[in-house]
Write a protein that binds this DNA or RNA. Structure first.
Lengths: 344, 344
DNA sequence: CTGAAAGCGCTAACAC
DNA sequence: GTGTTAGCGCTTTCAG
């Protein structure tokens, strides 16, 4: 393997000149540079990232820190959306020639062992957090160390940190308003998961706010705590329809729940959207497959913006204003909500 | 940040002793070691991976090299399965304290620019290839350089390389035999994609071989070239049923195609499995949702074995026998095939 | 514009 | 068992 020394010798210059030529960090005469570049090409030379990293203290690696793959949360946004996010991240990091390291904690190990190890041993320059839960210890340590990171998804503490997120509150609000505009007053809500997950909590609050804004009283019997299984949508609808005054529309917390509702409806001769209108979140393949109106999350843009922001933060290590970027999402109207109207 | 020098000074030993103590690469007196470890703990010292990498020529990073996220191929095996694979990889690399770098080529860039750059600049110690297409240039360069890598999925050349794969031929064979055993003789086959993708080609060959083994003549009208969209299953069934002698069973190339078939069947009053039996591949969420018999691919084991193999290869850089590990897959019987019999 | 030289933090001979 | 020392391949003052 050729080293910078070989290049210097072959090009008849010193190694510092070679370094200047490669990095543009010092003046080099055009012909000298040309000669150097030729030798580099000829010897197929590539600077060693370890050697470079040792002196620059940069690795050109960022870490995408995700929940454990086995976790349901990992597929929270529907699967193909993760691909979208990766694509967005990829585009941003490619521009600056950064690499992407993927990491998560093994269940049973310390909750932040992996990520702090990566930070401590200086294997990464920054972190992209993609973790819908907010209970997050390492954050504070990282803030203290001034280690660059960006949060994808809301983080409810008021620490000044970089965040890129969709507005789940807004999504819940718009889904609900959409139903209200269609004339519904009795509107059920299935939470996508425990309300202490911000995604779920925010959507629920958006739902409530929409009701308030339209002078509809929130009925606690119209709330059903769901999870990531079809069955939770199924039993939600079952439960709702047993009420004396059942809802005429439901905001499903996620597409798979909407599918469960569809299942129950079909088995029991209930018509969608005639008897019960449904809107959902995620706009996954399932929504498309079953003609379910659903909120589309632009994870591509989230990924791209978050990575861009992180690279900026890495670039200027000085104090800088933290940013809070909200990526808008839109509602994809399909059959299940009983309208082809556009919302608002 | 504490360095090895600080530790040496505080522990009143030389830096080599510290190094020996940390890595176990030299004899250190128990009390000395204890003292050193205490200082390390106290100063929260972590060896710099760049410095270490510079001398050991190891990065402790491996690269999972995948198709572009936008590519359909990326979701070929169904999405949650990718998670399974990641989990498997994660378990293996955690044991040896390795990190996972995720990389793919941006469309439009050179087909192997990213991966060869990673190799050249010595940012990784080995590569896990996950790429269903076989048209793969960098392989030969890597072989020449003796750079460690493992292929997940078949590679049809006869180069001696490490491979971990499921037996798609076997899967196609077993799906077909399952239908034959149920009494079917006219069996359609929808390819999951172009036949030059080995996944598709192998499944198709398994299908053909099963027919041959049971003295059933292959009928080319029973072949339909599908893709990754529901519509291809839909039109496949439509096409098949228009034949003078339509098939009574179909091997769908992937779950989404089976769903498309179900859709067509439902719209046209065709009963599944009574009128047409269906088996498929992937065993994705869709298969579960729609009660489709499907072949389960154990991507968890593929990931785990592949990463393990790669780490072995990285460990002993000497000549070693390449391995060819086949991970068995099994068939998950559901309603769509018209049996609860176990195959074979 | 170019070169000499001092490290970056660590490992691994080699000497004692 | 422990210390000394020579690098690993590169960046970056600082002179000239």
């Amino acid at each position: 393997m050729a080293t910078i020394k070989d290049i210097a010798r072959e090009a008849q210059v010193s190694i510092s000149t070679v370094s200047f030529a490669i990095n543009g960090t010092g003046p080099v005469a055009p012909e000298t540079k040309k000669r150097i570049m030729e030798v580099i090409e000829r010897l197929n030379y590539h600077p060693s990232s370890a050697a470079r990293g040792l002196v620059t203290r940069m690795t050109n690696n960022i870490c995408l820190y995700v929940p454990h793959p086995k976790s349901n949360i990992f597929t929270f946004h529907g699967n193909n959306l993760i691909n979208d996010m990766l694509q967005g991240i990829g585009e941003s990091i490619d521009e600056k020639d950064y690499n992407l390291l993927l990491a998560w904690e093994q269940p049973g190990s310390e909750t932040d062992a992996k990520i702090m190890s990566l930070v401590n041993k200086k294997a990464i320059d920054g972190i992209l957090f993609f973790n819908p839960t907010h209970n997050f210890k390492p954050i504070y340590e990282l803030i203290k160390q001034k280690f660059p990171f960006v949060f994808m998804g809301r983080f409810f503490d008021n620490e000044p940190i970089d965040i890129v997120d969709i507005d789940n509150f807004d999504a819940g609000y718009r889904n609900t308003v959409h139903l209200i505009k269609l004339g519904h007053k009795n509107i059920g809500f299935i939470s996508p998961g425990p309300l202490n997950y911000l995604v779920a909590g925010d959507r629920f609050e958006g739902y409530q706010e929409a009701l308030r804004d339209h002078n509809i009283r929130y009925n606690e019997h119209y709330f059903y705590l769901g999870d990531n299984r079809e069955a939770s949508g199924y039993s939600a609808l079952e439960t709702f329809l047993k009420l004396k005054e059942p809802p005429t529309a439901v905001v499903a917390g996620r597409d798979i729940q909407a599918v469960g509702m569809l299942q129950y409806a079909q088995e029991n001769g209930i018509l969608v959207p005639e008897d019960i209108a449904i809107v959902s979140f995620e706009n996954s393949q399932l929504a498309e497959l079953h003609d379910i109106t659903s909120i589309r999350t632009d994870l591509y843009r989230i990924g791209r913006e978050a990575a861009k922001l992180l690279l900026q933060a890495i670039g200027r290590r000085k104090e800088r204003q933290t940013q809070n970027i909200i990526i808008p999402s839109d509602i994809v109207i399909r059959r299940s909500c009983g309208s082809v109207l556009n919302p608002e």
